[in-house]
Amino acid sequence: MVTRALDAPPPSRGRQRARPGGAGASIGLGIAVAYLSLIVLIPLAALAWSAIGGGWSAFWTAVSSPEAVAALRLTFEVSAAAVAINAVMGTVVAWVLVRDSFRGRWAVDVLLDLPFALPTIVAGLTLLSLYGVDGPFGVNIAYTRIGIVMALIFVTLPFSVRAVQPVLAALDRDMEDAAATLGAGPFTVFRKVILPNLVPAVLSGIGLSFSRAIGEFGAVVLIAGNLPFKTETASVYIFGQIENDNSAAAAAASLVLLLASLVLLVVFGLIESRVTRHAR
């Protein structure tokens, strides 16, 4: 989704020449480029400058401080855990939504859109109050890594489900019938016929979720508290450094986070396209 949607093929030259309204469209493009520069490009340049403008050694000192390393490491660990759980459970949910039929299925489908629309701070607050110290279930996830994983599961669940759901719906069931006719049991059919077709979609869901999870702040901040070395994720660490007026350290960690996010999107995009090509 993220990597492909804007990657449409450019219009062909012939069409281009016949296209009406050259001057007006150029003004539109100019406005869009200026807006994008002001909104995205200049702030990112300032961020990069703040991170590496003081030289590589300053950058390295900032990102290799024990607190920064601990925060970045924790971020990747909890994100990986949340994404792995959702890769399995999101596929189960997608399966039930596509292949099962029961009353109220549409309601479950609608429900899955909510984490997209619900403010992250509200998500964090509700998880904390339900599964926190004074919650009705007597469990306590406040200031624990399990709590952070739970918050990340909440915000990335739609990515996992929605990546798999359409692919599963479009799957040709004749193949499964054929395999079953040839004597394959349900588990073999799933492993040999269905799963290989789902892998690219699952991977794409993993890439999107991972990229989202490592940057998450609102859902995590209340649950994580602010315990350096224990439950401080990278985004919480960056926020703390900003509040302490240490913007160079914040910028250095930000740059690492940004690059990691981009690498994840590109890598999972590449794996996905490679797997897709092999499958066909």
Partner: peptide, 9 residues
């Protein structure tokens, strides 16, 4: 792909 905190910074 950006953390909101990074955008703020």
């Amino acid at each position: 792909a950006l953390s909101p905190v990074v955008v703020g910074l």
